[in-house]
Structures are given as structure tokens and as C-alpha cells.
Design a protein around this nucleic acid. Sequence first.
DNA 1: ACGTACACCTA
DNA 2: GTAGGTGTACGTC
Length: 994
Amino acid sequence: MKKGDHLFLVDGSGFIFRAFHALPPLTRKTDGLPVGAVSGFCNMLWKLLTNARDTNVGVTPTHFAVIFDYSSKTFRKELYDGYKANRSAPPEELVPQFGLIRQATRAFNLPCIETDGFEADDIIATYARAAEAIGADVTIISSDKDLMQLVTPNVHMYDSMKDKQIGIPDVIEKWGVPPEKMIDLQALVGDSVDNVPGIPGIGPKTAAQLLEEFGDLDTLLARAGEIKQVKRRENIIANADLARLSRQLVELRTDVPLDMPLDALVLEKQDGPKLVAFLKAMEFGTLTRRVAEACDCDASVIEPAEVLVEWGATAHGPDLDPGVEHNQDLSKTDATAVAGASDIAGGARAVDVAAARHEAFSTHKIDHSGYATIRDVETLKLWIAAAKETGLVGFDTETTSLDPMQAELVGVSLAIQDNTQSPNSGNVRAAYLPLAHKSGGNEDLFSEGPKLVENQVPMAEGLALLKELLEDPSVLKVAQNLKYDYLVMKRHGITMQSFDDTMLISYVLEAGAGNHGMDALSERWLGHTPIAYKDVAGSGKSAVTFDRVDIEKATAYAAEDADVTLRLWLVLKPRLAAEGLTRVYERLERPLVPVLAHMEERGITIDRQILSRLSGELAQKAASFEDEIYELAGEKFNIGSPKQLGDILFGKMGLPGGSKTKTGQWSTSAQVLEDLAAQGEPLPRKIVDWRQLTKLKSTYTDALPTYVHPQTKRVHTCYSLASTTTGRLSSSEPNLQNIPVRNAEGRKIRTAFISTPGHKLISADYSQIELRVLAHVADIPQLRQAFADGIDIHAMTASEMFGVPVADMPAEVRRRAKAINFGIIYGISAFGLANQLSIERSEAGDYIKKYFERFPGIRDYMESTKAFAREHGYVETIFGRRAHYPEIKSSNPSVRAFNERAAINAPIQGSAADIIRRAMIQVEPALNAAGLGERVRMLLQVHDELIFEVEDEAIEAAMPLIVETMEQASMPALHLRVPLKVDARAAANWDEAH
DNA sequence: ACGTACACCTA
DNA sequence: GTAGGTGTACGTC
């Protein structure tokens, strides 16, 4: 070896452990032999040998060696008995790979070096210093901090996983001290993994600060009395010996007797056939091909090498585990299941699996230090191949926004179950693929702005590879709140196929019993608290978007999300079958994800001019009310403050008839104000009117335009599938399910919801769907008959109760009957009905009594529903969806009564929700079948109403098809005892269409 | 900056 | 009496 030569030293043992975590689990196809680390090792060697110049190493090696640990009985063990005592046995899949990697090294024609009594690090140190002394350069292929003490201007390290060279500045950046002080730093800090004691309570930051101040460890220990902080001073003085011992442990020896002199490490020519034979034996298809091509030999005529596999003393093949087979069957069924597949297993077995999974996963500790960062295309391909092999992958996206219509993709994470062990072992491997992390750049006029961080897979290439995975119907993608990721990926050109959503699974299992966010599910089922988003991206003023998060931090957070999601799936999915809820999930939940995603993506046009004109009008009217109100009150005050208003009305003005809210404040509700107005008081009426105007202005005319998307110019609401107890959807940002309709002033807002030119809006709504459901479930003859005959249902009720003929029903009588009908659906109480109708509670009680006499089936239904809820803790819709009421047995009578009313309402409201869900799922295929798919677009859902945007020429064909689909939506699953009726209308805006 | 109470919009 | 979401005020940190 001479000056100018370049020696590469690979830390073989370190690589094995690192690769094990950083790379996806990989097994040899023919026998399930775990070979993930071997594969990573071979790929890395091949890259360094053929193409080092194009990596961040930047030079070509002249000398090369791979160094291994020989045994654990090193001089350090003699020095300190506890050394590495914390090390547990290596994972089972790793055991055979130690031998294989040594064989791989020989196949690459590289020296394989190990010396009894010394660790790989000491051998590396000895070679590095020897080579440096001659004037050669050295690159140590490792990212282990224990080796950082060796870094000099001539000795670099190289992290092959991150393709990152580590030099003096990198060490300083990471640890706060230059390489030559690393020994002292480690001596102070210690190492829990190797059981190097260090000084307790001293971490890297403190150690760096102390070394900065005192120069080195000896000076520090000698002058420890000068340390200002009392605790720290005493601590260091008391533990000075521990620090000295630690230094001996961490300082690498550079005097190891070398079996092979430096010159023997000269890089030899590759033996093509020998290497190909080994790679073939490992069944590394891609690398075999690549090597064969480079060495110009024909792989097909080369026999696979004889490879020695040492499983270790207690190891056995994965197929010996009796639990494996049927559980793998289970996930395989799911993995290959396309939408609509049947139950995964029969009751008893699913129950057992569910219990076993929960047991395993709630005790399995999640360790996020082992997550990988995918830095290059090759590694990404390995992960994708592993996902395809397993057929199951946890998936999560990281983006710049919570709004999926605005979000830009920053990275994705993948989690793969380790199928080399039992599926119930709780073993999952996860990685984060950063795609668009940025650094630097205050985005002002003068700086260049943010730059893409280096060592990321280019976005286009990453998306192309992910597309293969996400659109592959044979790989089940598991996400939490899938609709979000589905939309983000769709906006990046990928339409996901084959998926499950852990949030929806949880919702089907436990609607009403806790929320279904990932953090809550993780706590509940895995006993694990995931990293909080705000700990990664900050919060409030100091919050940054995810693309500005440091990639290492991002990896821990993002990979954990995919990991937790996959674990949750493994725990929750079998519970669906165990509880008999698979059909609810597969028919009513999962298929709605793409339907809603498409609706959100389409959005709806609003006419900003109309809203701004309305806003101006409202502002003027409100202002004139304000003048009058101040006049009447005799002073200016904040009309919007119920507290101030209450003081004015009931304090200053001393008006009678005030009531208090539950917090003891004066109530200023519309009801109270109306009562005061009825007594001839002029002020309350004006308050009510003012409130109406300002409500319309602030909530609608002012707020809606702020939701117009900058690119699409439309408003994209977000539907939540899992936030109600009953199965209804909810809408937010903006909520388009509460746009005013009940009075003329408010209805004007609906005129601002318009169709695009050449199109109309069709509004199709179910008529009386909840009463029809009630007639079906409670099987009430009069109700069924009335619906069958198309009779006015409230008039019929009034007629039955009050003996008035339907023909000339007085409006007031019908109004009362209508209120009773609604009351029934809401789990009627005399108190509530009395409030609604402004009558005495006793009178309301009489009505209810009368109603039950006329419709005894309703009372029976209510009683049996309550009994069912008390017994099971939940109630069911006609399609088997469950709504849970854990407090139904509360000893607090009002809590109990509330839960009873909710439990009575839930099957009715929930069944109606199920029906419209079915309609939404069926309508797109129906339109497609009629050739209308491109011309009709479903935009909104408002509980019993669907809004479509339709080409003018398609309206005639589309309208009856939509009506038919909605009216038949329960079929063929369920034949209702009453017909469903849908009214539909087309117009240029929502007000006229409704 | 964040959480709660109140009031009010929808089905 | 059921099921939701949002804006304002006002409290806490």
C-alpha cells in the first residue's frame, strides 16, 4: 500500500444489525430462509465495488476488507464484567445470516477478517491508523458512533443506508465535539446498549458542554470542583472512576495483531462465476442478473453454490410453528380479497385469532429506533418487493396539509409484517420514504428559498414505483383514515386498489364507544402511545409543515404511523369476523371510501358574487338593528355576548321570566327572547332578528367564500365516515349539511350553490325515510298502509289520534301530529314534546298516551329496543350496524333516560343512513352501466338527500335512474315492508333544485 | 394559543 | 326528545 491508495473497511457485524432493521424482511422463496440482511449486504458490496464514485463516497477503492466480530470474549469483558451484558440474543431470523454474510464476503473475493479477543471496531481502528500512517485514505463503511473517534482529514466514515459520508464537520454537528474528543464524550455519556456506565445523568449535550469548557476528560475530572452546578459537581466527583473505566471501554485499540498485512487487502478481480453461483443459491434474481451481465457470464449455466446454513442451537424453521399456517391463511385471504369478499373465517376461529392477536400485540413493545429511512430507489424496490411478497402492507402518507385537497406529498411510510415469525408474534418492520423534504430558506424576496434535502428518491420515480404497489389488487393496503391518503394519492396520479381502513374497522366494531383516531386506538389495543405530531412539527406559532421536519425525526414519526396501523389491522380485522360484522364493514363502510373521496375531489361551485352581495345586505340590516338595540337598551354593549345581553335584559331592565342556563348564566335563547317579545317587549324581538342576520353573515356568506379552492375554484367539503354513533356522515370545512333552508332569508344562500355552464344540479331526497324505517322495523299496520297508499303521514297520524278526517285536516292539528311523529323518532318524552309544542307537560303526556293506544306496536318496539340496549350495550340497524351506548345502565336517571332515547333513535336514524349509503355506493355503477358515468357526478350528501351535477342533455335519462337506484337501495339485501319514495328536481342552483 | 359555553344552522 | 358542525365570547394557560 502506498500514499494515495484508498482502503475501504466494512464493519460487517454492524451492517448485519443495521440492515436487519433498515431493510424489509425478505425470505428465500423455496424454503423461507431469512436473507434480508444478506441481500442488503450483497447489494451494498456490489455498489461499492462497481460504482463507488457515483455514491457520496466519491472515490474508488484500491484495498478492501470486511471485518467481523469473532466472539464476545474480548479484552473489554476482562476489564469490566458488565460489558455488553445488556445484549440479548440476536433475533431468530438473524442467526443464519451471520454465516451467510461471511460466505457472501468470500464469494465477492474479499478478505474476511476476524481476530479472537478483539472486536471488529479494534481491528478497523488498527488498519485505519496503519493505512493513514502510510499516507493512504480510509473509508470505514459504518455509521456506528463508536467508530467516529477514528475520523480524521484522511479517514472518513460512510453510511451506506443513507448514502452519506461522515467527516469531521458531521461528527461535530451530530455530537458537538470533534472526533478526537469522541472518546471522552462517550466515557462521560456511557452507552446503555453496550452497558458502558458513563456518568449517570450526563447526556451528550452536557458532555459536549463540559468538554468545551474543560478541554478533555482528565482536565475535567481534575478540576471538577470548579463546576458551578452543585448536583453535577458532586455527581462527577463521585463517579470519576466510572468515567475512567468507561474511557478504557470505548477507546479503540490500534495495536491489534494483524493476521493479514495491509498489502494483502489489495482489491482482487471479481470471480464472476463464483459470485453468480452464490447469488443464485440465495435466489437474488435482480443482483444475479446484474452481476452476470457485468462479469459477462451466463447465469443460466452456472449451478447454485453449496451454501452452509447454520440455524443456531435453538433455532428452527418458521414452518415448525403450528400457529403460523392458519393465521397466514387468514391474512392471505384478506390480502387477496378484492372489494366485496366474504367473511374471513367462521365464528369460533375468528374469535380465537382475535384474542390471540390482541394478547400478542398489547404486550409487544414498539421500538421506533429500528425504523428505516428509504434513501434510494434500490432500497425502495426492496421494500415494495417485500410488500408484494407478503401481500399486506401498512401505508401512510405525510403531507403539508390536513386538507387532502391542498396537501402536497412529502413522504410515505410502509410497514410490513415479518412473516419469518408467527403472525401473532407482533413483529412488524417499517420504513419511511422521504420524497420532498426541504431545508433552509426563509421564503423572503432575497433568499433562494427552500432547497430539496439531498439523498431522497426523486418524487416522480418514487411515485412511479409506489403506483405499482398501490394499484396492485393483490396487495392489501392498510391505512388509518384511508380516505385522506386515497385522495392525496389520487391527486398525485395514483388510484389505490385493495385497501382496508383501521379507523372504519374500529368504527364498525365500536361506534359510540370511544373515538377511532389512531392515537386512541393505539392506546386501547396496543398499549402504546405514538409520537405526538406536535413533538415532531411543533405547534402554534413555531409549527412547521412536515416537509421542513428533519428526516430522522420524520422517520420515527411516520414509520411508526404505518407500523401502528398495520398492528391495529392485525388486531382489529379478525374481530370483525368474530363479531359477525364483516358484511357491515365490507358493504357499508369500505366501498364508501372511494365514493366520498371522489365527491370531495369534485367539490361544488359557489357564486361568490351572490354571497358577497348578500353579505353586504346582511351587514346593512344588522347595523340598523344595532342602532335600534342600543337605543332601546340605553347603552352600547356587545350584543353577541349572551353574558352582557343577559345583564342588560334581566339586570338593568329587570325584565321578568328569565331562566338560567346550567352554568347559572341568564339564558338568552331564542325561546326566552320570543316569550319576552310575546309580552310586548320590543327589544328581544330585535335581538332575535339581529342574531339571525349576523349568524347568516358570519357562518355562511362570509365564511363560504374562504373555502373556495385556489385551483379548482370550487368548494370541497370533507366528509367524516366515523364520527357519528348512528352511521350518519358528517361534513366539515365547510359543513355543507347545514346550509339554511327553513326561511326565505336563509334560503337565499342556497342560490349561491350553482351548476357549471351546460349543467344543472339535481337534488334527490328521500321522503319521510325515517318514518318509513320506523313503519318497517316496528311493523305498524296503519303506517305501512298509509305509506303504501301514498297518504300524508302526519295527517293520517292526526286523524288516528284526534278522529278528524284526513280530507279537511286543520293545519294546527296536523302540526301537532307531525311534532309527535318526530318526537317518536327522537325517543319521545313528555318534557321534550311539551317544549316543542309550547304546551303543558301534562297535555304532552296525554298526547303520548293517546299515541301509544293507537299505535301499540310503537311502544312495544321502544320497550324491546331499550331492553336490547340494556342487555347488549348496543342496538342494531336493519343492516346489522351497531351503535353502542355504554352508559345505558347509568345510575343517574337523566343520563340513563338520555341514553335510552338515543338508543331508540339510533336504529331508525342509522337504518336510514345505511340505506342512503347503499344508494351512494350503487349509483355510480348504475350510471356507468347506462353510459352516463361521464355526464353525471354526485357532489353532496345531506343525510336524506343527494346532489348531482348533470349535463343538460343527460338530465332526462339520469333523473329516473337516480330515483330508481335510491328507492331500491335496500335491495337485494333487504326487502322493506314499506316503499321508499324519492323526489328529484333539476335546476341551475340548489335552492330551486331542492 | 387552546378549551368550553352558548347559540343556532341542518336532517 | 335524536344526530351533527361552526362562530363568538371568554375563560385558562
